[in-house]
């Protein structure tokens, strides 16, 4: 094997790998969301363009899904505040 990288280079590479892993998680979320929003919004046979309702559904799908996650977290925190720690 060739010589090892020096410390500065090793640190730079570690940062790069970490950034790439964050990127990979981002891609993985986008693939999951595309698949889910496709199943929810694209109900007809594919045509040369999306219908108006398909396009509106796709445009809003990600934001409403993320709103749903926030809403659920808020509800759980409200319940915890009422009933004490559920653990």
């Amino acid at each position: 094997m060739a010589d090892k990288f020096d410390d500065a280079t090793q640190k730079e590479l570690a940062n790069f790998v970490e950034a790439e892993q964050a990127q990979a998680r981002l891609h993985s979320s986008i693939h999951m969301l595309t698949s889910m929003c496709w199943d929810k919004c694209v109900t007809g046979t594919p045509s040369t363009r999306f219908s108006r309702s398909e396009e509106g559904c796709l445009a809003n799908c990600v934001d409403r899904f993320l709103d749903t996650s926030l809403f659920m977290v808020k509800k759980i925190e409200e319940q915890r505040a009422q009933h004490g720690q559920l653990s």
Binding site: S53, G56, N60, R64, T68, M72
Partner: peptide, 18 residues
Amino acid sequence: KTNEKCFAKCVTKPSTSL
């Protein structure tokens, strides 16, 4: 899982807000 199942059941036509 809860988010996935409940979004599927409750938000059938995503619009500009919940």
